[in-house]
Amino acid sequence: MENVLKPLLDSANSIILGKEQQLKLAVCCLLAKGHLLIEDIPGVGKTTLSHTLARLLGLNYQRIQFTSDILPADIIGASIFDVENARFEFHPGPLFNQMILADEINRSTPKAQSALLEAMEEHQVTVEGKTYDLPRPFFVIATQNPSHQIGTFPLPESQLDRFLMRIELGYPDKRAERKLLVGRHRYSLIEELSVQLEPKQLANIQQQVTEVHASSALLDYLQDLIAYTRESTDYHCGLSPRAGLALLTAAKAWTYMDGRNAVLPDDIQAVLPSVAGHRLRSGSTDSDSIVAPLLNNVAVS
């Protein structure tokens, strides 16, 4: 296992400097067949990250820049009347790619947002009564500006739930930033990257992730965590069953990446801020402090 994923992570780390943990989470999200939401200010490397991953995995990559005037048809595609054939023809939009970077998703109107998110959930698009399947694997990395910025439409909770993880990149540390300043332009480096994981291998790994063992003791802990969010006054509303499932899948992927075959509470704790942070509403906004009461108060045995 490790010999498959390690070169992937190493190559990624050589492009995006000083973000090992975030990269690992991003790959973990990918292995768990989930979509990723990156929330941060512009310019910290969100686009670079997604581009790098697409490159390393050999996936078709498409970036969609969301603006306030983007329409659903711009994303999905539209039926356009073909005069020669005298009939409507569907022209697939940028969504029909294996890896999508939905940049600044919260700049667009809710209508456009929901068009994307519905496609993410159902892995297919329906236009004028006809259903079109999306390619597989299908992986969306959406980026979001912090919600307090001007001119944003924050994603509603129901939409947030569709992202398996939300991560924050943050500024690079001093050494990484220096390296960045000294080194070559990132895009030229990305161009040089070679595919580390064939789509077939990826599908294989995704299958293996589901087979990771979760003992009943672990499930007890997981359920205690979920119950805590539903009962405690620390949170406005609790985690949904879908969130619970997401937590388990993400933890399994994390376990797999660590080269083990049984999920430990540590794995759950590792993915908890990214999986639960955006699904819970509490006084604070950053994921770590949101899940802090959970990590501290729910007993693990």
Partner: peptide
């Protein structure tokens, strides 16, 4: 909010499909 237009008419600006 200078970025947002203040339009009162609904659904009549951009054509996007049939």
């Amino acid at each position: 909010s200078p970025t947002l237009a203040n339009k009162k008419t609904k659904g009549s600006d951009d054509f996007y499909g049939l």
